[in-house]
């Protein structure tokens, strides 16, 4: 039944179209793209032409543009990326409610479960696109400002150029997956309120709070359950051979968050009175 499928996908296509034609989405992308650009320029200006390489990533960038994308992701993971996810996820239901368009979607009609699924799919696509913008800009700017060479890993092994880019793609995937739990939390919070800005702030605060909790040794019993636990764990993906533990742990953890908060969002939204 190709037609039935096309119709079921009709709303998702239309909502994605909406996401990518909003100026706000592109402003968020631009802000993210500015991160590797600024880092690249700063390193370029402060170090002049490529010199020797040190242990820190930033020093490596100066010697090899391949690392700029990694540094860009590393810098953006704690705050910038979660902020952009907070904007999109926080707006997902609360934004429709505050505008009053929610009642028209529901009387169109859209099933409430279907609406949540489409909204979450849009969040997932946004996470992937945001990480892609960040990593892609990093790769390009690195190439332009510093040129690229085979990368020398922490272990001392050397990676060919193709393999280096494959590692960057892997890291980008890790970061994108890392954001899925936060996206689900955001979707749930968004069903609780008609004030999107409040929800966005709440999501951002949660992301920061989880990272602070993750840095307190007194709370180490809690750490494995924090959705931020593996956010910067992608350094393992730069080892030779690749250390998959943190990638897999992260994926499992995020899937758990998606299930739990997806269920909570449905539980809340399925019977909620839409009075906005």
């Amino acid at each position: 039944m190709p037609e039935r499928t096309a119709r079921a996908g009709g709303m998702l296509a239309s909502e994605l179209h909406l996401l990518f034609r909003r100026r706000r989405t592109w402003a968020l992308f631009a802000a993210l793209a500015a991160v590797p650009v600024l880092i690249g320029l700063a390193v370029r200006v402060s170090t002049g032409p490529p010199r020797g390489r040190g242990p820190a990533f930033l020093d490596q960038v100066a010697g090899n543009g391949v690392f700029l994308a990694v540094v860009g992701l590393l810098v953006s993971v704690p705050l910038f990326l979660p902020l952009t996810v907070a904007v999109v996820a926080g707006d997902s239901i609360a934004g429709e409610a505050s505008q009053g368009t929610l009642r028209y979607l529901l009387t169109a009609p859209v099933s409430r479960a279907g609406l949540l699924l489409v909204k979450y799919a849009v969040i997932v696509v946004f996470c992937a696109a945001a990480v892609l913008v960040l990593a892609g800009t990093g790769v390009l700017v690195g190439l332009v400002l510093f040129g690229v060479q085979p990368a020398v890993l922490l272990s001392g092994d050397t990676l060919g150029l193709g393999a280096s880019y494959a590692r960057i793609a892997l890291i980008a995937a890790h970061v994108a997956v890392s954001l899925l739990g936060l996206g689900a939390i955001g979707l749930f919070l968004s069903t609780l309120s008609d004030v999107p800005v409040g929800v966005m702030a709440a999501i951002a605060v949660l992301a920061v709070a989880a990272q602070i909790a993750g840095s307190l040794p007194q709370l180490d019993w809690l750490h494995p359950w924090l959705f931020t636990e593996h956010w910067t764990g992608f350094v393992d993906l730069l080892r030779q051979p690749v250390l998959w533990d943190s990638f897999v742990d992260n994926a499992v953890l995020q899937a758990g968050y998606v299930l739990v908060f997806g269920a909570l969002a449905y539980g809340r939204f399925a019977t909620k009175d839409v009075l906005s």
């Binding site: 119709r7 079921a8 009709g10 709303m11 296509a13 239309s14 909406l18 909003r22 100026r23 505008q99 009053g100 368009t101 009642r103 028209y104 979607l105 009387t107 169109a108 009609p109 859209v110 279907g114």
Partner: peptide
Amino acid sequence: VEGPAFYPYLSGRANLVRLDAADRT
């Protein structure tokens, strides 16, 4: 219901198309 509501940055036509696309039937 209780007054019209639309996406302000979309055209009138695009708003109606969006709502219609939301209806699977």
